[in-house]
């Protein structure tokens, strides 16, 4: 393999170095015993994990992030799945326009979207930071929900539901016995992608935070602006472990490729 495709092998190796290198660096620094970010670390310790876990703003940020990601994912799916179904089946005129509408947040720069929502929700309508975060993230996730569930629907045979109807199932029964189970891998994929997208988001969260309410990435950004110790490296290491864990779990449930293809 290596001998046959030297250029490809070299490029793969470089990609690995550039992708994995910084990540491994961060992990190493997280376990450092030193007082500042330095490489190689002077020794091994878990003290920065202790620091990270006992930091009140990180605790608050993690809770907010989890809550916002979970709720926004749920809202986006509840709104997005019917849209994906209607678009796939062309149930009404103008389904293209509706699809475009629901996909448009992905085109607008997130800072612009965030600023518009900030103006509208927080300044004009005086909605709380948590409410604004929930609405903002739901808008952010809608394109993922519509796209990914839509893609899995497009791959499934449109005759399936008809087959169920022909065999004696009413419309509701056909939906719950056939259409929904067939869509499940797509829905799980959309949920995982949406959750991660929300959880990792900075621009929207930066604009829509409020007193005592902000997300973990925003708190981490705040922290590194003022301190140069390995706490954030420790947080990053924990997040990395959680993400890898979630990915493995998803792989067991629906297959990794299904989540990230399309």
């Amino acid at each position: 393999m290596i001998r046959r495709r030297p250029v490809l092998s070299l490029l793969s190796a470089l990609a690995m170095v550039f992708l994995l290198g910084p990540i491994l660096l961060v992990v190493a620094i997280g376990f450092s015993s030193g007082d500042t970010v330095e490489f190689p670390p002077p020794g091994f310790s878990l003290r920065w994990f202790d620091q990270a876990l006992s930091n009140a703003s990180f605790q608050q940020g993690l809770l907010t992030s989890l809550l916002v990601a979970a709720a926004a994912t749920l809202f986006a799916l509840v709104l997005g799945i019917p849209v994906a179904l209607a678009v796939q089946r062309r149930t009404f005129r103008g389904h293209k326009a509706v699809e475009t509408l629901f996909l448009s947040p992905a085109i607008v720069p997130e800072l612009v979207l965030g600023f518009a929502l900030f103006q509208q929700l927080m300044v004009t309508m005086r909605i709380t930071a948590l409410g604004a975060l929930l609405i903002g993230h739901t808008v952010l996730l809608l394109p993922y929900a519509v796209r990914v569930t839509g893609a899995s629907l497009a791959l499934s045979d449109p005759a399936l539901e008809e087959a169920a109807r022909g065999l004696g199932a009413g419309p509701l029964r056909a939906f719950f016995a056939i259409t929904l189970p067939v869509m499940t891998p797509g829905i799980v994929s959309a949920a995982v992608l949406s959750f991660l997208t929300s959880f990792n988001n900075v621009p929207l969260s930066l604009l829509l935070k409020g007193p005592g309410i902000s997300t973990l990435p925003v708190e981490m950004l705040n922290y590194v602006q003022f301190s140069y110790d390995p706490t954030v490296a420790a947080v990053s290491t924990l997040l990395l472990a959680a993400t890898v864990g979630a990915a493995l779990l998803t792989e067991r449930l629906v297959g990794f490729n299904k989540v990230f293809s399309r």
Binding site: L160, E162, A163, G170, P181
Partner: peptide, 20 residues
Amino acid sequence: LPPERRNIGMVFQSYALFPH
């Protein structure tokens, strides 16, 4: 009459077997 009340048996070109 909707399809579920017609007592027909249909074989689709794509077979349309329920994958799950």
